[in-house]
Amino acid sequence: MVNFFIENQDLIYIVILSILLGVEVISNVPAILHTPLMSGANAIHGVVIIGAIIVMGHAHSDDYLALTLGFLAVLLGTLNVVGGFVVTNRMLEMFKKKK
C-alpha cells in the first residue's frame, strides 16, 4: 500500500486534480448545453484511442490475435473520436447560426 502510493504519487495527483477539475468545470453549466456537453465529453474520452495505438504499435508482427484486436480497437476508438467531435460540432453550429 505504502509502496503503491510512493511509486504512483504523480498519477495519484493527476487523478485527484482531474476529478476536482471535472466537477468544477461542469457544476455551473446551463441545462441548455447538457446535450452538447455530454457529446463533447463523449468525444474527449475517445482519447482511449491512444492506448489502442500503443497496443497496435507494439504488437509483434506474428501475433495475429493482438494485431486483429489492435486494428479493431484503433478503428472503434477513431469512430468514437471523429464521430463524437463531428456530432458535437453539428449540434453547436445550430446554436451559433441564429445569433
Binding site: I19, L20, G22, V23, V25, I26, A41, N42, H45, V47
Partner: peptide, 8 residues
C-alpha cells in the same frame, strides 16, 4: 482526458 470525463 478519461478522469475529466469520468468526473464531469
Amino acid at each position: 482526458g478519461g478522469i475529466l470525463v469520468g468526473s464531469a
